[in-house]
Write a protein that binds this DNA or RNA. Structure first.
Length: 455
DNA sequence: CTGCGACAGGCGAAGTAACC
DNA sequence: GGTTACTTCGCCTGTCGCAG
C-alpha cells in the first residue's frame, strides 16, 4: 500500500509530462476505477479500522459511493473514453485512488488557537480514507485547510511555475467545459467572476473538471492560476505616470481592495498591490539608493536582518524573513523590499561559497566540466529537458541564473553549428571543446587555486 | 574597443498564512 | 469560499568594471 501511495505521489510530483502517452488516456474506464477502489479497500482494512467512524457510517459510505458514481458518470460524459482503447494504463490511476495510511505526526510550524485546533482535527478526521483526488483535486479547499491535509497525510503536489504542458491541459479543459455546457467566453467569465446563486454547482464542477484534467495541482491552486491567467489578459506591462496617478487615487478612495482597484485599472489586483507596495509605499521615505550596494550598506543590512530575525525568532538563512520589519528598521531611504531580499540571498550564497572552499567566481575549466558532468548525470534526452534548478548542491552552489548563463555561454562558444541530435553527443562535443585547466590562465580575482571540487 | 561576468532594477507569477 | 498580506522567485534588461 505504501509503495502504491509513494508511486502516486511520485506521479503527481513528476507530472504527466514524464509519461505523456499514458496520461492522455484520462479518464479511466469506470470498471478500472471501481476495481482500483475495491483493491484499495481490500489493502487497507487495517487503516480503515483505525479511522473514526460515525454510527451511521455505512449509510454515509453508501450515499458517498452513489454520489461518486453519479459524479463519475457526469465526468465520463464530459470526458469521452479515449479514442485508443488499447492505450497503456494511466500512471495516476494505476495507483489511485488509494487510501492513505494513518497520518504520521509532523512538527507544526504554527500555533493554532484551541478552537482552530479543534476544527483542524475534525477536518482532518473527516478526510481519513479519502483518495488523493478527493482531497486535493476535487474540492477547492482554501490554503489553510489544504495545508492541514497536506501536513496530516503527507500529501505533495507540483509547485512553482506552470509548465507549458499544464497550461495546455488547463486551456483544453476550459475549452471542453465551455463546449460541453455551451458557454461563451463572456458566460465563462461571468461564471468565474460573478457566478449567480443558481450556478454554484456548475462553478464547483468547473474547477473540479480543470483540476482533474491538469492533475498535478490542487484545485485551489488551479483556481487561482486560471483566474490570474484570465485577468492578466486585460493589461500588464509598463506603468505610465497616468497609471500611477490612477492607482494613487484608487487607493485613496478604495483603500486596499486590490481586486476592485485592479478591475478599475484593467490590471490584476496582485500586480496593483505589488506595484503599490514596491514602487510607491516603500519610497515614501525618500528616493532609494541606486546602483551597487556600498559595504556600509551591506553591513547595515546584515546587522538589521540578524537583529530582526532574533526578535521574531526565525533563522536568517531560512525562509519567510520579516522583510517588512527589516525594511522599516533600515532607515529613512531603504531600497525596495525585493531588492533587499535578493541582495541578502546573494550575500548568503557568496558567503557559503567562500567558506566551503568553492570558488567565489566561476572558474571556466573546472566549473564548466562540473556543469557538463552534472547535466549528463540527469540522463535527459534533449537540452530542453535539463532541470537546471537541480544541478546545484551544497558543495557546488551557484545561483540558478549563473548556471543557466554559463550553459548558454558554453553553447554559444563551444557548440558546433549543427548541434547533434542527442544531448549525450552534444555533451561529448562540449566536453572535448572546453579546454583543460592548463590551457586557461588563472582568473585574476576571487579564485582559490587548489580546491577539491570533484563533483 | 570588445567581450564577459556580476549584479541591480523592473515586472510579475506563485506559494503560504491569516482573516472575514 | 474568497480575499488580502507577505514573501520568494523567475525572467529579462541595463549598467559597470575588468581583462585581453
Amino acid at each position: 500500500m505504501e509503495q502504491r501511495a509513494q508511486r502516486a505521489r511520485q506521479a503527481i510530483l513528476s507530472g504527466p509530462s514524464l509519461d505523456g502517452a499514458s496520461w492522455h488516456a484520462w479518464p479511466p474506464a469506470a470498471e478500472e476505477h471501481a476495481s482500483a477502489k475495491r483493491v484499495a479497500g481490500d489493502d487497507d482494512d487495517m487503516a480503515l479500522a483505525k479511522r473514526p467512524r460515525s454510527d451511521d457510517g455505512a449509510a454515509v459510505v453508501a450515499a458517498t459511493v452513489e454520489q461518486q458514481q453519479q459524479a463519475l458518470a457526469a465526468m465520463r460524459e464530459l470526458h469521452p473514453p479515449p479514442f485508443d482503447q488499447h492505450a497503456p494504463p494511466i500512471v495516476l490511476d494505476a495507483s489511485l485512488p488509494f487510501v492513505l495510511e494513518a497520518p504520521a505526526p509532523t512538527p507544526r510550524t504554527r500555533k493554532l488557537r484551541p478552537e482552530q485546533e479543534k476544527a483542524r482535527a475534525s477536518f482532518v478526521a473527516q478526510h481519513a480514507g479519502q483518495t488523493y483526488e478527493q482531497m486535493v483535486l476535487e474540492h477547492a479547499y482554501s490554503s489553510d485547510r489544504l495545508y492541514w491535509l497536506k501536513e496530516a497525510y503527507q500529501l505533495s503536489w507540483r509547485t512553482g511555475r506552470w509548465s507549458a504542458d499544464e497550461e495546455d491541459r488547463a486551456t483544453a479543459a476550459l475549452d471542453k467545459f465551455c463546449q460541453h455546457h455551451q458557454l461563451s467566453q463572456a458566460a465563462l467569465d461571468e461564471l468565474i467572476w460573478h457566478r449567480r446563486p443558481d450556478q454554484k454547482q456548475l462553478h464547483e464542477e468547473l474547477w473540479k473538471h480543470i483540476a482533474l484534467s491538469v492533475g498535478t495541482r490542487p484545485n485551489y491552486a488551479v483556481r487561482m492560476h486560471i483566474k490570474s491567467m484570465r485577468k492578466d489578459v486585460l493589461r500588464g506591462g509598463h506603468w505610465t505616470p497616468e497609471d500611477v496617478a490612477a492607482l494613487t487615487s484608487a487607493v485613496a478612495e478604495l483603500g486596499h481592495q486590490w481586486e476592485k482597484i485592479g478591475t478599475r485599472l484593467g490590471r490584476s489586483g496582485n500586480v496593483c498591490k505589488h506595484f503599490w507596495r514596491e514602487q510607491i509605499q516603500s519610497r515614501k521615505a525618500g528616493p532609494a539608493p541606486q546602483g551597487a550596494f556600498h559595504p556600509d550598506e551591506e553591513e547595515a543590512l546584515r546587522r538589521t536582518v540578524l537583529a530582526c530575525c532574533a526578535e521574531v525568532g526565525c533563522a536568517p538563512d531560512g525562509p519567510n524573513l520579516p522583510w517588512t520589519l527589516i525594511h522599516e528598521r533600515l532607515g529613512p531611504s531603504p531600497r525596495r523590499i525585493s531588492v533587499l531580499s535578493r541582495k541578502w540571498r546573494g550575500m548568503l550564497s557568496a558567503e557559503r561559497r567562500s567558506s566551503d572552499e568553492q570558488n567565489a567566481r566561476w572558474y571556466a575549466p573546472r566549473d564548466d566540466h562540473i556543469l557538463l558532468r552534472r547535466i549528463r548525470a540527469q540522463r535527459k534526452a534533449s537540452a530542453a529537458d535539463i532541470e537546471f534548478d537541480k544541478l546545484a548542491s551544497p558543495d557546488w552552489q551557484w545561483p540558478l541564473y549563473v548556471i543557466k548563463k554559463h550553459w548558454v555561454v558554453m553553447l554559444r562558444k563551444r557548440a558546433p553549428p549543427d548541434p547533434p541530435a542527442s544531448l549525450d553527443e552534444l555533451l561529448d562535443t562540449l566536453a572535448r571543446r572546453v579546454p583543460s585547466a592548463d590551457q586557461y590562465k588563472m582568473l585574476a580575482s576571487g579564485r582559490r587555486p587548489g580546491t577539491t571540487a570533484s563533483r
